[in-house]
Design a protein around this nucleic acid. Structure first.
Length: 493
RNA sequence: GGCCCGUUCGUCUAGUGGUUAGGACUCCAGGUUUUCAUCCUGGCAACAGGAGUUCGAUUCUCCUACGGGCUACCA
């Protein structure tokens, strides 16, 4: 184990939306850094100009701050190893590629994309494994320089050993052996002068004194190339840990980067901002993601951020992929939500109520929140839970909801008519309401449910609702009686 | 196709050379209850298959199957 300061990085490329797969990688890096009182560095790998997306940076930083994954060094934060955006480090890569060229560890390749494509196809047809035929590998130094100076376009490729093998060590998977004979002379610098990921990442990780690399599983195959680069430079490589990927809920295939549709047509969130927009608490999301590929013991599931930091360790990361489970996330989010103090919960639902166009005061919400708290799984549920309290007119509902089994509209209407005078009380409180309605039940000689259900539907417009007496009090006498009146009209029409 | 990684209830996972293989989500049943939900109790449910090593393998090794990843002048 490296005894130097722990320095880890999250190094996304700004090509698209901030996906939960990336978020989980960022989280593990963050937890590891904080566990070791080290540094969590954000580095932007924008070496692909074609796929650059100008919105990506905002999605990323907003997402990280929603998740509470603050970085110690990186864009907007600075740090002594900057710049932290790769497109601003081109001179550094130029210097370093020159070292490799001078030492003969890399060579210029003048092959055109067309020729490469053709070679690849031929090789494919002949079932040859390797795409590139190393056509330019043995060009003389003189010719190479001459052609470059003449302005001919070129890439720079690594000159990998032609045979033998190499053993690389992964902190999660152990030793992995690769045959050099099956590897390609990958491109290090593209024809536009910009490095590929492989080259930039090695140079930057070394220069930024990264102690541990925790990244997605999809990089294990490029391990021998990266390790060989460290060797060429004579640098000591960081400790590597390849994280298991996140699978779709079905367990089939990598977690999609396209918005998924549920069987009922609704959309599953897959991007961080979609989870935020759907009203997931970041603490719950973080807790849930921490458990995807990592565990503390055989029973501990809910952990605060500090506990996560305190308990996180590399050796409890699993090597097998994990499927994303929305039900479990929902259950966890509901738990977190219920544990929130009412004041806190109120301030978190406000943005959702505002964008739904509701009028409210904080005091009002504070009174209402206990009624709906245990019926919510996400913050956005507050909208369709609280609408009946915040909007005077009920949405139209099916009249049959008003009718308990085996009762007619006429019977129910007359029951509701009896409710009206019973609730003409000056003190419109839960206790008084209950007293009056229970008395009414025995006077009318009906079962409690026979009376309560129609009232509930009359005032809520639906069968599933918070407890009746509290609901009536929260609604107030005027709204309650008006709605009961409306129900009677509905029954008699 | 080649290379690499992986495989414990449906899902996330714990675990050990000898355990009634544990927990959580889901689901089911019951309780609380005026509905829904919460909450409580209980239940269903797993070591992919085959060889080997061993007194004994879910655990160690190999093979097969299956799943996944990579195979670009993308990351």
């Amino acid at each position: 184990m490296n005894t130097e300061q722990v320095r880890v990085r999250f190094a996304p490329s700004p090509t698209g939306d901030f996906h939960v797969g990336g978020a989980r990688t960022a989280l593990f890096n963050y937890l590891f850094a904080h566990h070791h009182s080290g540094k969590f560095i954000l580095r932007i790998e924008d070496t692909d100009q074609k796929r650059f997306n100008p919105d990506a940076m905002g999605w990323l930083t907003n997402g990280l701050s929603y998740l509470g994954l603050d970085w110690d060094e990186g864009p907007g934060k600075g740090g002594e190893f900057g710049p932290y955006v790769q497109s601003e480090r081109l001179n550094i890569y130029n210097e370093h590629i020159q070292i490799l060229l001078d030492k003969g560890f890399a060579y210029r390749c003048f092959c055109t994309p067309e020729r490469l494509e053709q070679v690849r196809e031929e090789h494919k047809a002949n079932k040859v494994d390797i795409g590139y035929d190393r056509h330019c590998r043995n060009l003389s130094n003189d010719e190479s320089i001459k052609r470059a100076e003449a302005g001919e376009a070129f890439t720079v490729r690594i000159k990998l050993p032609l045979d033998g093998n190499t053993t690389v060590t992964d902190a999660i998977r152990g030793d992995i052996v690769f045959d050099y004979g099956r590897l390609q002379d990958s491109v290090l610098i593209k024809a536009d002068g910009i490095p590929t990921y492989h080259f930039a990442n090695v140079v930057d990780d070394h220069l930024m004194k990264i102690s541990h690399i925790m990244r997605g599983d999809e990089w294990v195959n490029s391990l021998p190339l990266h390790m060989y680069l460290y060797q060429c430079f004579g640098w000591e490589p960081p400790i590597l840990a390849h994280l298991p990927i996140i699978l779709n809920p079905s367990g089939k295939g990598k977690m999609s980067k396209r918005a998924q549709r549920a069987p009922d047509g609704s959309e599953y969130p897959v991007f961080v901002r979609q989870f935020e927009g759907a009203g997931y608490l970041s603490d719950a999301l973080v807790n849930f993601m921490a458990l995807l590929g990592w565990s503390f013991d055989d029973k501990t599931e809910e952990m605060t951020r500090d506990e996560l930091i305190q308990r996180f360790s590399l050796d409890r990361i699993s090597s097998s992929p994990a499927a994303w489970n929305y039900e479990k996330l929902n259950a966890m989010n509901g738990d977190y939500l219920r544990q929130l103090p009412n004041e806190d919960l109120v301030s978190r639902i406000e943005p959702f109520l505002t964008s739904a166009g509701f009028d409210y005061t904080q005091d009002r919400l504070l009174k209402l929140i206990p009624l709906v708290k245990e019926r919510m799984t996400t913050l956005s549920d507050s909208v369709n839970q609280l609408d009946i309290f915040l909007v005077e007119d009920l949405k139209p509902y099916d009249v049959t909801l008003l009718l308990p089994k085996k009762t007619t509209a006429g019977e129910t209407a007359s029951l509701l008519k009896a409710v009206h005078p019973a609730l003409e009380i000056s003190e419109f409180t839960q206790e008084k309401i209950e007293e009056m309605l229970r008395r009414l039940v025995s006077e009318l000689d009906v079962k409690a449910g026979q009376l309560f259900q129609p009232i509930r539907v009359a005032v809520c417009g639906r069968k599933a609702a918070p407890p009746l007496f509290e609901t009536l009090e929260a609604l107030g006498k005027t709204w309650s009686l008006n709605r009961i009146g409306n129900a009677i009209t509905l029954l008699e029409s």
